[in-house]
C-alpha cells in the first residue's frame, strides 16, 4: 500500500464531505421513519391497481379504510407502548372485553347508551392500569405481563359473555349510541364511517400530543433510555403507567369502533388484532427498541397491511399469500430500522 499524497488525502476528505445521496437518504429516513413504508404503500397501491383495476375503485378504497379502522385504532395504543420500549400482547383482548361490557350492560341491565360506553371505557382503563401496575410496581417485563393478561382478559370476556354474541337488536335503546361509529358518511366519492373518522382523529390527536407536550417528550425519553430519563428528573414509572392507562382507554374506543363495524359484540372477534397491531407499528417505522417512531408511520403501516390483504385477494391469490407478504414486510422493516439507527453526523 502506498502512502497517500497530500492531494489524495484532500480528495478523500472532500469526498467524505460531499456526502453521497445515500447519506442524505439515510438521514432523511432517520428523521422521518415513515418515508419507507410510505414508498412501499405507494408502490403497492400502483401495482395492485395495475393487476386488478377494481382495486382503484372508490368503493374498494373506502372498504379498505373501514377494514383498517379497528386494527388502526388498536395500533394507536400499541404505538404508545412500543415507543416506551414495551409491547402489549393484550390489546385485542382489552378491546373485545370493553366492547362486551358496553353491549352486555346495555342488553341485559338496560343501561343507557352513553353510560354503557363509559362503563366500557372504565373497563378499558382498568385493564390498562392493571398492565401498568404489574409492569411498574412488580417490575415484570411487559411481554410477560401482557402475555398473562391476554389470557386473563380473554377468559374474563368469555366467562362474562357466556360465550355468546350480542347482536344489535338486543342492545335496545343503547343500540343507536353503541353502533353510532358504524354510521356511513359520504366524503367526496368516498363512503367511510364515523369509526374511520374516529380512528383518524385519534392519530391526529396523539400525533400532536407526542410532538407538542412534555408528556410526549417523556414517552420518547423513557423508551430511549430509562436511566437517562430518570437522571433528567422524569418519573419513569409514572410515564409508563400513564401510557398503559391511556392505551386502555384508546382500546375501549377501538372496541366501540368494532361494535359499529361488525354490528354486534362478540367475544371471539379480533383474533389477530394483537399481532396485526404490532405489525402495523413496526412496518410504520417505530422501533421495537423504543424511543423512535411516529403515529403517522403507524397509520401508514396499518393502511399498508389493509392494502396488501385487500390487493392480494383482488389479485386472485390465496389468503396465505397475504400472511406471507406481511411476514416479509415485518422482517424488512425491522432490518431497515436497525440500519436507520446507525446514523451519525
Amino acid at each position: 500500500m502506498s502512502t497517500p499524497t497530500t492531494t489524495d488525502a484532500e480528495a478523500l476528505i472532500e469526498n467524505l464531505d460531499r456526502k453521497g445521496p445515500m447519506h442524505h437518504f439515510h438521514h432523511a429516513l432517520h428523521k422521518y421513519p415513515w418515508i419507507s413504508p410510505g414508498i412501499v404503500l405507494l408502490v403497492a397501491v400502483i401495482i395492485f391497481g395495475l393487476i386488478n383495476h377494481r382495486f382503484w375503485a372508490i368503493s374498494n378504497l373506502s372498504l379498505i379504510t373501514q377494514q383498517v379502522s379497528i386494527v388502526g385504532a388498536i395500533a394507536v395504543a400499541q404505538t404508545l407502548v412500543i415507543l416506551t420500549a414495551g409491547i402489549d400482547l393484550s390489546v385485542g383482548a382489552v378491546a373485545v372485553l370493553a366492547s362486551m361490557v358496553m353491549a352486555k350492560t346495555a342488553a341485559e341491565q338496560g343501561v343507557p347508551g352513553p353510560l354503557a360506553l363509559l362503563l366500557g371505557f372504565a373497563v378499558g382503563a382498568a385493564a390498562g392500569a392493571l398492565n401498568g401496575f404489574l409492569i411498574t410496581k412488580l417490575k415484570l417485563p411487559p411481554f410477560i405481563v401482557t402475555l398473562g393478561t391476554l389470557s386473563i382478559f380473554m377468559a374474563l370476556t368469555l366467562i362474562y359473555a357466556t360465550g355468546r354474541t350480542i347482536n344489535a337488536d338486543k342492545m335496545g335503546d343503547a343500540a343507536s349510541v353503541l353502533l353510532w361509529l358504524g354510521t356511513p358518511i359520504q366524503v367526496g366519492g368516498f363512503k367511510i364511517t364515523y369509526g374511520v373518522v374516529a380512528m383518524i382523529l385519534m392519530y391526529v390527536i396523539f400525533s400532536w400530543i407526542l410532538k407538542n407536550t412534555a408528556w410526549g417528550k417523556h414517552v420518547y425519553a423513557v423508551g430511549d433510555d430509562p436511566a437517562a430519563a430518570s437522571l433528567a428528573g422524569i418519573r419513569v414509572n409514572r410515564v409508563l403507567f400513564s401510557v398503559y392507562l391511556v392505551g386502555g382507554i384508546v382500546l375501549a374506543i377501538a372496541g366501540w369502533i368494532a361494535i359499529g363495524r361488525v354490528g354486534s359484540a362478540s367475544p371471539t372477534i379480533l383474533p389477530d388484532a394483537n399481532l396485526e397491531s404490532i405489525t402495523a407499528v413496526v412496518i410504520g417505522g417505530t422501533s421495537l427498541f423504543g424511543g423512535r417512531g411516529t403515529m403517522f408511520g403507524t397509520l401508514i403501516g396499518a393502511i399498508l397491511v389493509g392494502v396488501v390483504s385487500n390487493g392480494l385477494v383482488l389479485a386472485g391469490l390465496d389468503q396465505a399469500y397475504k400472511v406471507l407478504a406481511i411476514g416479509i414486510l415485518v422482517i424488512v422493516s425491522v432490518a431497515l430500522d436497525q440500519w436507520i439507527r446507525k446514523v451519525r453526523s
Partner: peptide, 20 residues
C-alpha cells in the same frame, strides 16, 4: 459520566428534559 441524555431527542428537548 454516562452521558445521561435521550439519544433520539433533539438538543433543545434534552436541555429541557423534565423541565419543558
Amino acid at each position: 459520566q454516562t452521558l445521561a441524555v435521550a439519544p433520539a431527542l433533539d438538543i433543545a428537548s434534552n436541555l429541557y428534559l423534565g423541565r419543558e
